[in-house]
């Protein structure tokens, strides 16, 4: 079923909306949340919460890119869940991603401004769009979708060392970019 048709089910308040959503995007949603949370039970709970949220906000929202819309909601719910967990319980890939991304935090020297979340997102958006397609995809698959290096290499049909190199250099570039923007996180 096309995404537009699924969305119409939401507008019609048909319970099939959730079924069809799960049918088409469930695997994607589970895999993504599993990558963040690290266990199946939490991942299922997150996916259920995602569907509940979708039901609440559609309508009136009518997402244009449904998959990305679901992904954003699921990811936010998963990260929030993670925030409530104890450090011991936090598992999955989040820890590794988290440590890697710490390298991109700009140093506090020469800081001009503290940006709010919206501004920070806009800066990151701009940075990502300045990258070429391959680097962009690799970076997003790692730090947005929490894919492993091996999974990214397989999806992108490249070797793992290349993925690691691209990630490393892009993290460096991001740090330089944020420092140049005078951003304090």
């Amino acid at each position: 079923m096309k995404d537009s048709e699924i969305i119409e089910l939401y507008f019609a308040r048909s319970e099939d909306a959730i079924t069809e959503t799960d049918k088409k995007h469930g695997a994607f949603c589970r895999s993504m949340t599993f990558g963040i949370l690290g266990n199946r039970e939490d991942s299922e709970e997150c996916v259920n919460d995602t569907y509940m949220r979708l039901w609440e906000i559609i309508p009136p929202q009518r997402p244009e890119k449904f998959r990305a819309f679901i992904a954003r909601i699921a990811r936010n719910i998963a990260l929030n869940m993670l925030g409530r967990m104890s450090a011991k319980k936090r598992g999955g890939r989040y820890g590794a991603v988290y440590d890697e991304l710490s390298e991109s935090i700009p140093s506090n020297e020469n800081v001009e401004k503290r940006v709010d979340d919206k501004e920070l997102s806009a800066l990151l958006d701009k940075f990502l769009r300045s990258l070429d397609r391959e680097k962009q995809l690799i970076f997003l698959k790692r730090y947005w979708y929490m894919r492993t290096v091996a999974e990214i290499a397989a999806e992108m049909s490249v070797i793992e060392s290349k993925v690691k190199m691209v990630l490393h250099r892009t993290r460096e570039k991001l740090r330089e970019y944020l420092e140049k923007e005078g951003v304090q996180i």
Binding site: R75, L79, Y98, I105, E155
Partner: peptide, 24 residues
């Protein structure tokens, strides 16, 4: 701060998110 960076990534453009989505 790393957490904030990770969360801020969540609100980038949907076209970027969609482009990078794995296919299942």
């Amino acid at each position: 701060r790393a957490d904030r960076l990770l969360k801020a990534l969540g609100n980038i453009g949907e076209d970027l998110i969609d482009k990078a989505a794995p296919v299942y």
